[in-house]
Amino acid sequence: MIMRFIYQLGSPPYFYALSGRLLPWLTGICLILFATGLYGGLVLAPADYQQGDSFRIIYIHVPAAWMSMFVYMVMAFSGAMALIWRIKIAEIILINSAHIGAVFTFLALVTGSIWGKPMWGTWWVWDARLTSELLLLFLYLGVLALYSAIDDKRKAARAVAILALVGVVNIPIIHYSVEWWSTLHQGPTITKFDAPSIDTRMLIPLLLMAVAHKFLYAIVVLLRARNDLLWRERRSQWVANLFKGGS
């Protein structure tokens, strides 16, 4: 059943049609989530007793940082699919995720540093999480550079898939080695499920924003993948059929 679904998803026309039907829904949900999340975060949530209003940047910063890791996981997963089953869609998802993941990572770094200036009094500290995020950015850039350096794009996708898998083995090692190396970052405030050390009125918008970012990622990756797919399959019959009516 699941395998059949995966194989169906692997067929470009099916994927194109399905993603076309999904996109309006995803966009709608994403807009609602962003609207409620931003309203909750910027208007309803109380100001932090210590950080004042400047804590509100977490509604972009934290979701972006989460996404930077989530997207890498997606990349590694689709990399494995691309290597094992040679699914073209997985290759396309893989490389387009790398672009988005790099942007999220960059965003997390920039917002973190904007927040760090008033809070820590400096734009940048060599703190464990900042540094591992920076290294993650380099891993993303490596993926992108390798992909653009290989001309044969199917070959490039396989190379990138191997690299993503090597990277995913290394990310925990890098993360913990850097953690050992130094840490100054405030401890996680949300993963403690029994008693989160964050006000519920602050937490709910944050979770909404996190889900909104996931939807945003899904939308962007589908849009990019559809474009990429059309370009790669531009000589095939189903693409020709698709555009016969229009032109």
Binding site: L146, I162, N170, I174, S177, W180, W181
Partner: peptide, 29 residues
């Protein structure tokens, strides 16, 4: 990964150096 490329050198350093970080950290520590 880069041996088939004509200008693989810069990319090689971008691929490999981040993965070297744990070695650097543990060793110098």
């Amino acid at each position: 990964l880069t041996v088939g490329l004509r200008r693989g050198g810069v990319i090689l350093s971008l691929l490999v150096l981040p993965l070297y970080v744990p070695v650097l950290i543990f060793a110098s520590q």
